[in-house]
């Protein structure tokens, strides 16, 4: 084999290892940020309604900072190789999208759409072949949000807020109806979608308890 041919082939073989290292570093960064995000959002379960805007305010700058990471990953990924590397960051990306969507619910009570989610994280349309927000990742994030909302329904009552469970119930049922319109395959997404039923069941139980309590305070404190 002539040396040039050889050199060329050897280069091709080596490049990938190096790239993987660099992406890994960015993912570690990304992971730290999403860890902070979920840590902050976890406080919602003991935050009274009045202080929610304050909590949301502390989350926003961290969400904002994710833009740098997505930009760095888009920069690193060679054109056309999105599908080759995406598994490395999809866990982090889903967590970031979950945070963005949860914040949106807390702020406006509405659902963050896929393009808006991408925008919030600074993902640009022109990165299409290097870094994009797939439907699958977006849907995973929404399911994570529902998991948290069922917990929030329970904890709101503990904190004396009897309206939140009703709002959550309506919001989640609507979202669930949306999922029911999708033609999901028998994959991880389908399994997690199936598990949503338990969250709905929990929320319904809370709504049930709250409704009956309101009208019929059957038992009185007897500690």
């Amino acid at each position: 084999m002539d040396p040039q041919n050889l050199e060329y082939i050897n280069q091709l073989l080596d490049k990938d290892v190096e790239l993987r290292e660099k992406i890994k570093d960015q993912v570690t960064e990304f992971d730290k940020k999403t860890r902070t995000l979920t840590g902050l959002l976890n406080k919602i379960h003991s935050t009274p309604p009045s202080q929610v805007p304050e909590l949301v305010a502390t989350v926003t700058p961290v969400l904002q900072s994710c833009k740098e990471t997505t930009a760095a990953l888009a920069e690193l990924t060679p054109p056309n190789q999105f599908w080759r590397w995406k598994d490395m960051w999809s866990v982090s990306l889903r967590n970031a999208v979950f945070s963005a969507a949860f914040v949106e619910y807390l702020r406006s009570g509405g659902l963050l759409s896929l393009p808006r989610a991408a925008e919030t994280l600074g993902i640009k349309d022109e990165w299409q072949d290097r870094f994009t927000l797939s439907a699958e990742d977006y849907l995973h994030a929404l399911i994570t949000m529902v998991n948290e909302l069922s917990r929030l329904a329970v904890n709101s009552v503990t904190m004396g807020d009897f309206e939140q469970p009703l709002k959550i119930s309506t919001f989640v049922k609507d979202l669930f109806a949306g999922f029911a319109m999708l033609n999901l395959k028998n994959d991880a997404l389908r399994r997690r979608y199936d598990s949503l039923k338990y969250d709905i069941k929990k929320i319904e139980e809370v709504v049930y308890d709250v409704s009956l309590r309101k009208l019929a305070p059957v038992q009185t404190d007897n500690t």
Binding site: L166, T170, V207, V210, S211, L212, K214, A216, V218
Partner: peptide, 19 residues
């Protein structure tokens, strides 16, 4: 826990949610 007929329970819940 409440010992009411299921129909009635349903009514109560429905009314609350509709509020």
């Amino acid at each position: 826990e409440y010992d009411l007929p299921p129909e009635l329970l349903d009514d109560i819940v429905e009314r609350t949610v509709a509020e």
